[in-house]
Design a binder for these strands. Structure first.
Lengths: 327, 327
DNA sequence: CTGAAAGCGCTTACAG
DNA sequence: CTGAAAGCGCTTACAG
C-alpha cells in the first residue's frame, strides 16, 4: 500500500503538501495540486484512515445502536442512515442493544472508543451515559438521555389518521394505544384523542373507546378479539385504530377469526407502515413513518451539531389502502 | 482521556510494560501486572483503538455487506453476526450493496480501507475484487468470487422437506423452484427432486411436477394459482413445496382465493423460516435456516482463516407448523 | 522479565 | 504558498 510519503516523492513535493491537497485545502497552487493528484492516481493511493483517526481523533464512521436490527422498522432506519452516511462517504457501525439498558451503554461506549464521529441511538432505555464526550449524540425515534431527539411527528400523524376515519363517516371508534409508559405511545394516543374530541360535537358526537396494549401482534389480536366480542353489538366500533401496524395486523386476524369483513364490517388503521402492512390481506391503511427524512435529519444533526441541539419532529404521511372504507 | 503513558507513570513502569499487560502477554510478572491493572482501573483507561490500528494495521471490526438490511433474512444474519462478533469484543461495520455489483465492490473496498480485520459478504454478484488483500473474506449464503462460502445445506434441507411431505402420505407433489440461474435455487431443487425420486417406487409412485419462478410473493401466488386452477382435478397435487417462504405464502394466498383449505385440501411448505412464516394463517411449515450457526461459522472463518479456506454447509431444521398435514 | 526507542501514516502549527 | 518537523498513542523488535 502506497503511503503519503510515496505520493510526495513521486510528485516531488513534501508530505505536507500532499496532505493539504487531500484535505482540499485551497492554498495549494494549481500546478502542484495537479502533480500531486496525478501521483495519487498513478499509485492508486488510499489514505490510511487509522493514521488520520489517530491525528484527528475522529474517523469517518457514524455509530448506530438500535434495539434490534431484526425489527423491520429499525432495519428501514438503518438502511436509510447508511445511505445518508454514504453520501458523505462515511460508514456506519451497527450495534444492537437487545432492548437492554446495560448493553446499550456498553455499545455506545464501544462506539465512542472507536472514535466514531457521532452516534445515533434508537434508545431502549432513557439512560444516559456518564462518560463525558464531545462526540455528538442524537436520539432517533426514542429519546436517549438528554440528547436531541429526531422523531416522527407522532401527535400530528395520529391526528391525521383520526381525521381519515372521521371523514369516512366513522362515529364509533376504538383506539388501541401502545404501552403508555412509553413517550411514543402517549404522543400517538394524545394526537388521536385530541383530534377526535375536537371533531366531536353535540349534534354529531363521536363515541371513542380507549384500550392499552403492547406494540406487538399478539396484543393487537387479543384486544381486537376483546373489543369485537365483548362490546354489545349496537355499540361495537365501526373502526379500530391501532398505535402500531403490528397491533393493527393482530386486529385484522381477530376480525377474520370472528368472520368479520374488513373493511366491510370494520375499518382498521395502523401506524408505521412496516413492509408487512402492504402484504397482509386486506392491505393496511396506515401512517407511514418518513424513514428517509428521519435518517437524513439525524445524520444532519451529527454533522451540524456545532449549532444548537434541538428536537426535530418529522411529518409522516397517511397511506390509504384497503383496510379502511366508508361505514 | 488518559493514555498508556499516564498509566505507565502511575504504575511506575514503562509504556512497553503496560502495552504488554494489555496484550495479555504472559511474560509480565505478577506484581507488576497487578500494579498496572490497578492504574488502568483508577484512571479508567481505554486504549486508543486508532493508534493500535495504525500500528497493527488492523482493527477489531468485522465488515459486513448485505444486499439489503431491510430483508428480514439478512437482518437476522446481521444480528447474529453482531452478537458473535461481540463475543470476541469486535464491532461490525454494516454496508448495503442494494443488489448492485458496483456498489458491492465499492463497499468492500471502503471496508478494507478502514482496516477491518475481516469482511463477510452476502453477495449480490459473483464478482470479485481486484485489489489484493490479505484480509480474510468469506461469503455468506451466496458465494462471492472465489471466497469460501458458509451457507445452509440447501440440498439436504430440501430433502428433509421432501421426506416430511412423503411421510404425510403425499404422492402428488408440485415443487416451485427459485430462479435456476441462482446456485441456491438449483441446490434446493436438486435436493428435493433427488429425494422424491429415491422415494418413488413402481409399487408406490410419486407424481412430481416442477415449476420455476422468482423467490418472491407474487411469483408464488401466480404459480400457485396456475397449478391449482389449470391442472385437472384428478391430477392436482395434494402438496406444494416452494423454494422460499415468500413463494409459499403466495401459494397460501392463491389457495385462499380459490377457496381451498390448507392443510385440508392442500399442504404447503416453504423454506427459510422468515418471521412472517409463523405469522400467516395457517402458520407455515418450513425449513428454518440456522442463523446462529451460520453467523458463528462465518465469524469463525474470519478468525481461523489462517488455516484452509473451505466451504461450510450448515444443517437447517424442519419446523412443522399448520400448513402441512396428512392427505 | 523489563525498559528505551523506533516507527506506523497521517495532520498541522511554525517558519520562511 | 510550501517545506521541515513534531507528535497523535500505540506495539514490538532490540538490548540488557
Amino acid at each position: 500500500m502506497p503511503t503519503i510519503k510515496d505520493v510526495a516523492k513521486r510528485a516531488g513535493v513534501s508530505v505536507g503538501t500532499v496532505s493539504r491537497v487531500l484535505a482540499k485545502n485551497e492554498t495549494v497552487k494549481q500546478p502542484l495540486k495537479l502533480r500531486v493528484q496525478a501521483a495519487m492516481e498513478e499509485l492508486d493511493y488510499k489514505p490510511n484512515l487509522a493514521a488520520r483517526a489517530l491525528r484527528t481523533n475522529s474517523i469517518d464512521v457514524i455509530g448506530l445502536v438500535v434495539p434490534d436490527i431484526t425489527n423491520p422498522f429499525f432495519a428501514q432506519l438503518a438502511k436509510n442512515i447508511e445511505m445518508e452516511a454514504a453520501k458523505r462517504s462515511h460508514s456506519v457501525m451497527l450495534a444492537n442493544s437487545h432492548d437492554d439498558a446495560e448493553t446499550e451503554k456498553t455499545q455506545i461506549s464501544a462506539l465512542l472508543d472507536r472514535s466514531v464521529c457521532g452516534v445515533i441511538v434508537v434508545a431502549t432505555s432513557d439512560g444516559k451515559i456518564e462518560r463525558g464526550t464531545d462526540v455528538p449524540i442524537v436520539s432517533l425515534d426514542r429519546r436517549f438521555g438528554e440528547y436531541p431527539l429526531v422523531a416522527t411527528d407522532h401527535f400530528n400523524g395520529s391526528q391525521t389518521i383520526a381525521e381519515h376515519l372521521y371523514n369516512l363517516g366513522h362515529r364509533k371508534i376504538a383506539y388501541i394505544a401502545g404501552p403508555l409508559s412509553m413517550e411514543v405511545a402517549r404522543r400517538r394516543k394524545e394526537g388521536f384523542v385530541s383530534r377526535i374530541e375536537a371533531l366531536s360535537t353535540d349534534a354529531d358526537p363521536i363515541d371513542l373507546s380507549l384500550y392499552e396494549g403492547q406494540f406487538d401482534y399478539d396484543s393487537g389480536e387479543e384486544l381486537g378479539r376483546f373489543i369485537l366480542e365483548n362490546v354489545p353489538r349496537s355499540n361495537r366500533p365501526t373502526a379500530i385504530a391501532a398505535a402500531s401496524d403490528q397491533q393493527a395486523i393482530g386486529v385484522l386476524r381477530s376480525a377474520r377469526d370472528l368472520k368479520l369483513d374488513v373493511p366491510g364490517d370494520l375499518s382498521v388503521a395502523g401506524f408505521d407502515d412496516i413492509t408487512l402492512a402492504s402484504l397482509v390481506v386486506p392491505r393496511l391503511t396506515t401512517l407511514r413513518q418518513p424513514f428517509e427524512a428521519l435518517a437524513a435529519t439525524a445524520v444532519d444533526q451529527i454533522f451540524e451539531s456545532a449549532g444548537k441541539a434541538e428536537d426535530h419532529a418529522v411529518a409522516g404521511e397517511v397511506i390509504v389502502r384497503e383496510s379502511t372504507a366508508a361505514v
